[in-house]
Design a protein around this nucleic acid. Structure first.
Length: 197
DNA sequence: CTTTCGATGATCT
DNA sequence: GATCATCGAAAGG
């Protein structure tokens, strides 16, 4: 079984295509989550990627089968969740940066000790806290519990622009977001983003 | 609205 | 020893 298709999204593909395809998809972890509204693509050709210098202990899951999770600790404090893709060279993935909370609001508010739904999952560290993601989720497949993933029911307008929080390859337009969403980690400033059909 | 800074620890050189 | 795919609070315009 070589298909990397999960929830109607093809993960056996370049990370920028996957990052784009994930916008609007529903992601739940143990029934808690919502609609993905912001992602970023990373791969081995990319100086900002954890995989730029090849396999290491930390990034091992990025070299495993597509459609699985890669979780890492950020700044010693936060967890960040990636979806593993596959492209020539391997070591590619999509960082989940923001979700529009729809399911399990009470659970997410309790975990985040925060009422405001608008920023409950607006950031890579925030969304993992809200969904209860930790290193223990690293390497798990996305097509079975605790994960649930389903593509958007209809085409949506997506923006592409420069990524956030990196110091290398800062101009590559590998950040994707749902146009008009109020749940992004940051806006896509006019002039820096391109609308995709 | 903006910028700055501390927290905190794994990872890699 | 430096660098982080970050967050939140605080301070300044």
């Amino acid at each position: 079984m070589a298909s990397g298709r999960i929830g109607d999204i093809e993960f056996d593909a370049p990370s920028d295509a996957v990052a784009r395809a994930l916008i609007g998809a529903t992601l739940l972890v143990d029934g808690v989550g919502g609609r993905i509204v912001e992602t970023e693509a990373y791969d081995e050709t990319d100086p900002a990627s954890h995989t730029f210098n090849g396999p290491t202990k930390r990034n091992a899951h990025m070299y495993g089968p597509p459609g699985h999770a890669y979780v890492y600790r950020s700044y010693g404090l936060h967890w960040c969740l990636n979806f593993v893709c596959r492209e020539p060279g391997h070591g590619a993935g999509v960082l989940l940066r923001a979700i529009e909370p729809t399911d399990g609001l009470a659970e997410m508010r309790a975990r985040r000790r925060l009422e405001d739904a608008r920023i409950l999952c607006a950031g890579p560290g925030r969304l993992t806290e809200a969904l209860g993601i930790t290193l223990a989720h690293g390497g798990l497949r996305l097509d079975r519990p605790p994960f649930f993933l389903q593509a958007a029911a209809e085409p949506l307008e997506v923006l592409a622009g420069p990524r956030i929080g990196i110091s290398k390859a800062v101009d590559a337009p590998w950040r994707f977001g749902l146009a008009g969403s109020r749940f992004l980690s940051k806006p896509f400033p006019r002039g820096t983003a391109r609308a995709l059909k």
